[in-house]
Design a protein around this nucleic acid. Structure first.
Lengths: 339, 339
DNA sequence: GGCGCAAATGTAATCGATTACATTCCAACT
DNA sequence: AGTTGGAATGTAATCGATTACATTTGCGCC
C-alpha cells in the first residue's frame, strides 16, 4: 500500500499523487478527485518516515519530564500534546524517572528520531546534553529553570506573584509566624520555590528564621513529617505555606493528628492547585500554577521558533495566583493558643 | 552527519559502518574500533527514520488511553513505557479525551508512523478502527475489554477476585446492607466493574436491590452526590463499595458532611488503590489493581507477538486484591444507628 | 606456484516518499 | 500559421540507512 500502487491504480505518476496529498492546487480537480477515490479504496496512508526522510522534517517533538506519576505533570503533558496534535506534530514523551543516565538516553533517542524540537522540565539536565541538541540546531525550551544558557528559550514561572498574594492574605488575617515546607533541595524547582518564598519574606521585613523552614520531599509523607517538626516549635507557627499541594496535604494530616483544627489553630496553603486540593478536608487553599498553560506555552515557544516567528532564547511567563479556600482563616488570638 | 560522512572520514564504505552499528561480528575488530572512534568524534546518530524505512521495522508502539489526567493512567503508562524503552521501542502516547473522532485521528497517525503494535485502553473504540490495524497485520492488545474479537489479544482484569475478598471482609464484619457507587454507564470499564460486583452479589445470595446501586461519574464530585443519595435510604447501608477510589473519596466527604463517622457508622471501600488513598482520613481501604503490572503485561503481550513467541488473540490476566485500611470496620449494631 | 576458501570490505539496489526539471498540450496572441 | 506561455503531468534524483551480491585479500595446502 505505497504511493506507487496508488499511482498505478489511478493511472497517474507518483509525483501527481504526492502533489494531491500535499497540496492539490497544482493538479486538475478532476484528477484529484479520481486519485482521492483510489486512495480511499486502497486505504492508503503515506509513510511518514519516508516523508520526513526526504523533507527533512520529522514533525516530532520531544517532551522530557521527570515522572508522569507525579500529579504535577499529566496536565502539563495534556496542554502540550493537545496543541501539538492540532498542529500535526507527534509528541514523544520521555520520563527520566529522576535518573541522569536515563536523561541521556532520552536525548539520544530524540536525536535519532530527528525530533524537531524539545521541551524539558526536569532537574537532572546535563549541559552537555543541551549542547548536543543545540549543536544540531534543534530548538530547546526549558520550563521553569532559573538560569538559562544562551539561545535556549525558557518559560518562567512567576512564583513571586502568587506567593505575595498568599502572604498578603495571611498577613491581613493577622498571621505573623508563617512556616514554610520546602521540597527536596536536590530538586532545582524546589529551590526556586523556596528562594521565591524567602525573597518575598525579606521584602516584608521579616527576619529569616530558619526554624520556620523545614524540608519535605514534595510528597505527602514528607509533608507530614515536616509539619510535625514545625508543630514542636514554640510558639507554634499560625500558618503554613507548602512548596506543593502534596506537602500541604501531608501537613493537614499531621495537624489533625496533633489534635489541632484547620484553620482555627493553623492555616495551610499549598502550591500548584492539583485537583485533589478541592476535596481535602478542609478544601486546600493554594497558589495556582496552570500546568495546562505551562505546557501550552512550551509548545507555542517551540512552534514559533520552528516557524521563524521568533528567535531562540526568548523568555515567556506563566503567572501564579492565590486561590482562597477553607484551609485558611484569621490567626488565632495569642492567648488562646491551645497546647 | 550521516553515514556517508562517517564512512568517508573513517576510510571505509557505508556498508561497513552500517555493519558496525548493527552487529560488528562481520567486521574486523580493528576497523570497528577505528570507526567507533570516528562515530564518537563526529557525534553521529543514525537516522531511525531511514533505518526503519529500509528495515520495515519502525520500533514504535502506540499506547492509546482516554486521558492522562485521570489518575488511573499515569502508572499504566509508566509500566508500559519502562519495558518498551528497555527493549528499544519508542512509545507514542495518545489521549483520546473520550472523543471517538480523536480516536480515529490517533489510529491514522499510528498507521502513518508505521507503528508495529498498539495497546488500547479506552471505551470509545470503533470496530472499524481495529480492523484498519488488523488488516495491516499490526498486533493489537486491548486492556480490560469484555468481549474481544478474533485475533486481538486482551489483558483481562480479574475484578471478581478482589471484590470477593472485599465483600467477604465486610460480611465477616457483620455487614449486610452494602451500597455500590458505580461509574458512568457510558464507560465500558465502569459497566464491567458494576457487573462483576452484581455477579459477586448474587453469588452471595443477596437480592438485587437497585436502590443500593447508584451511578457516579468516577470522579470525586460524583462520588459525593451518589453517596448523599445513598444516605437517604432507610435503613441506611452500613458499607459502601465504590467503582473507583475517586468515587470513594467523594463518598468519604459526603459521609463526613452528614455528620457520620467512618468506619463506625459506615465502612467505605474504594477500587484501584491510587496513591492518595493512603492519605485520606481515614486511610481508604481499597481493591488494588496494579496498573504498572497492567501496562507491563500489555507491552509483554505485544512483544511476544512481535517476536513470534505467541499468537495474536491470547488472553492475559491481572489479579485484584483487597487492601485493608482504616475506612472499614464492623457493622454498627442495628439499634445504635444514629439518624 | 596455483587453487580454494573464508574473512573483510565494497558496490549498488532498495525502502517510500518529495521535488527539481522536463515534457506535453492547448489556448491565446501577433 | 507560428510563437508564447501556462497548466497538468511525468521522469528521475534524492533523503540516509540496510543488505544482497560482488570483489578483494590473505592464508593454508597439495
Amino acid at each position: 500500500m505505497n504511493i506507487k500502487q496508488v499511482a498505478k491504480k489511478a493511472r497517474v505518476s507518483t509525483a501527481t499523487v504526492s502533489r494531491i496529498i500535499n497540496d492539490s492546487s497544482l493538479v486538475s480537480p478532476e484528477t484529484a478527485r479520481r486519485v482521492w477515490r483510489t486512495i480511499r479504496q486502497l486505504n492508503y496512508h503515506p509513510d511518514s518516515q519516508a516523508r520526513s526522510l526526504v523533507s527533512g522534517r520529522s514533525r516530532i517533538l520531544g517532551l522530557i519530564i521527570s515522572d508522569i506519576t507525579n500529579p504535577f505533570f499529566p496536565e502539563l503533558v495534556k496542554g502540550f500534546e493537545n496543541l501539538a496534535l492540532q498542529n500535526h506534530y507527534e509528541v514523544i514523551l520521555n520520563n527520566t524517572n529522576y535518573d541522569p543516565a536515563r536523561m541521556a538516553t532520552c536525548v539520544r533517542r530524540l536525536l535519532e528520531r530527528r525530533a524537531e524540537g524539545v521541551a524539558i522540565m526536569t532537574s537532572e539536565m546535563d549541559p552537555e546534553l543541551t549542547d548536543e541538541l543545540a549543536k544540531r540546531g534543534i530548538p530547546i525550551v526549558f520550563l521553569d529553570v532559573g538560569s538559562v544558557r544562551n539561545r535556549i528559550s525558557n518559560i518562567r514561572v512567576d512564583y513571586a506573584q502568587g506567593i505575595r498574594e498568599a502572604v498578603d492574605h495571611l498577613i491581613t488575617g493577622g498571621h505573623r509566624r508563617i512556616g514554610f515546607i520546602s521540597g527536596p533541595m536536590s530538586l532545582k524547582s524546589a529551590c526556586t520555590r523556596k528562594s521565591a518564598f524567602l525573597k518575598c519574606w525579606r521584602a516584608y521585613g521579616f527576619a529569616e528564621d530558619n526554624g520556620l523552614i523545614v524540608e519535605g520531599n514534595h510528597k505527602i509523607d514528607g509533608g507530614e513529617s515536616a509539619m510535625s517538626r514545625l508543630l514542636q516549635l514554640k510558639p507554634r507557627p499560625t500558618a503554613i505555606l507548602a512548596s506543593n499541594d502534596l506537602s500541604a496535604i501531608g501537613a493537614l494530616g499531621a495537624i489533625r493528628l496533633a489534635g489541632l483544627r484547620i484553620p482555627e489553630d493553623i492555616s495551610v496553603i499549598g502550591f500548584d492547585d492539583i485537583d485533589f486540593g478541592q476535596f481535602t478536608h478542609p478544601p486546600l487553599a493554594t497558589i495556582r500554577l496552570s500546568r495546562t498553560e505551562l505546557g501550552g506555552k512550551a509548545f507555542n515557544a517551540l512552534y514559533r521558533i520552528l516557524h521563524g516567528d521568533s528567535k531562540k532564547g526568548e523568555e515567556y511567563n506563566v503567572e501564579t495566583h492565590f486561590v482562597a479556600r477553607e484551609s485558611t482563616g484569621p490567626a488565632p488570638q495569642p492567648g488562646r493558643q491551645t497546647q
